[in-house]
Design a protein around this nucleic acid. Structure first.
Lengths: 254, 254
DNA sequence: CTAATGGTTCGACTAGAATCGAATCATGAG
DNA sequence: CTCATGATTCGATTCTAGTCGAACCATTAG
């Protein structure tokens, strides 16, 4: 018995209401103080301190001290990725009774996943970028193409500067609601930042929802024109994708 | 609070020693009876029955009744994949005090992941298959090439027959020890089966370890010759990979 | 049929974990 | 400096979830 790493510790850590609430909140990519987290988790400060201690010890989150505040955040993309996987499984076996709030459709359309774009839109953008030859796939990863460099530069993102940081440039992350991949890594992060800076979308307060304006969404798609002729591997991708875009109905935010 | 699917349930389920032990055992892809599982988990029959009931209810495992036995197995590849992710995180933050048994190196070299090959060897094989043009990568997935079909046929695997089943043909799965991808899906499963049928390797009893014979490993690599000239995307892949192969030291099984 | 074994159900016990009240430390505002 | 607020520590309490003993159903062996 007991082969392999010790799963129990990590899983048990996530398997508590208060802590899961904390982790979910941190999935927004934002850093929160202990009291804020206590509030969202619905427990007292003492209790949250206890939980945060445990999460820190297991290196699922990190702290940054600033004055008399301590800002907590997810330890890294791997943690976010694991949480998304968990959501995927949980979602599959959901009763349907839960998770039917008004947040739901907006969340599924576009949300933040740690620091990059997820949801229908995230997946769609990623696939469209591939179609446009911005990346080249190879075993176990992605490469930015020369054309891709130019594309990002047009958006005001200097990929060379990003590449010099420790963080891997392009990664993909599996989407729990879509069961397909979206762009993560330094580029995914930079892209979302740019989208927000340009005012195309805005992250809703205290939520993972990314709300796109109609014009913002239009502007984004304008940068990723459908490539009807450029069939990468003989699959019927283009038609499939355009259908996906049609299916994204615009959500009313209350 | 409480956006998204209910993580807690699933995580808490895995976050128990007995249940994690069960799930780990089932990661071998084998089906076990309740009493066998009770034994490996180190609890009584009543207790395991209790746990199995919970795992069933959450659809993490499935049962098949046969006479007076009930055979339990993982519900599917997604569950195995989630467990591997968890192991990845747990492994990263491991003390080092745990997980240093003699099993360790053998497990890391080659192990079964649900029903396909994982570990250094699994990752290596996958990357080598890509090099050999057996697959073609596209957005969010893999395609088998014509050449790949022939390759599998030479191994005695009829890919057309496999393709007609519900299960997706090619998938990839992230390896916890290697942090790289290996081949999953129907093809991954068929490949491992063939490897075992040919006597190249054998799954150790009550373990996830896949023990390759020296000749078996040789035969496998003979089918995947290094492609020094065929550079896919201008990266230094070939040299990198050959180093990886060198690094796989042969393990003595006690 | 009876005996033996696989598996579940019920009830009681217990350990451990989550929770909070109160006190304490740390930092910043005034 | 004092006061207010963020955050942690300690101790006591409560409660849930895992555990097993015993009894009970199901199936097979003989």
């Amino acid at each position: 018995m007991s082969e392999g790493p010790n799963i129990v510790r990590v899983a048990a850590l996530i398997g508590d209401n208060a802590r899961a609430e904390v982790l979910s909140a941190l999935m927004s990519g934002r850093a929160y103080t202990a009291t804020e987290l206590a509030d969202t988790a619905g427990v007292t400060k003492q209790t949250i301190s206890f939980h945060l201690g445990k999460l820190l010890e297991a290196a699922l989150i990190t702290v940054e001290k600033q004055g008399r505040h301590r800002y907590f955040m997810l330890a890294g993309p791997e943690v976010a990725s694991l949480l998304e996987s968990l959501m995927g499984l949980a979602f599959k076996n959901e009763d349907g009774s839960r998770f039917t709030g008004p947040r739901d459709p907006a969340l599924r359309k576009a949300r933040i996943c740690y620091d990059h774009l997820a949801g229908e839109l995230g997946v769609c953008v990623y696939e469209q970028m591939l179609q446009n030859g911005i990346f080249q796939q190879h075993s176990g990863g992605l490469d930015l193409t020369e054309h891709g460099r130019a594309w990002f530069l047009r958006l005001g993102i200097d990929t060379d500067a990003l590449a010099s940081s420790k963080r891997p440039l392009c990664r993909t992350c599996l989407d729990w609601s879509e069961r397909r991949h979206h762009l993560a890594g330094a580029l995914g992060s930079a892209l979302l930042t740019r989208i927000q800076e340009r005012g195309w979308a805005k992250q809703e307060k205290d939520s993972r929802v990314i709300a796109f304006s109609a014009s913002g969404e239009k502007a984004l798609w304008a940068m990723l024109p459908p490539q009807s002729t450029l069939s990468v591997s003989g699959q019927t991708f283009t038609s499939q994708r355009s259908v996906d875009i049609e299916n994204i109905q615009t959500i009313q935010h209350t």
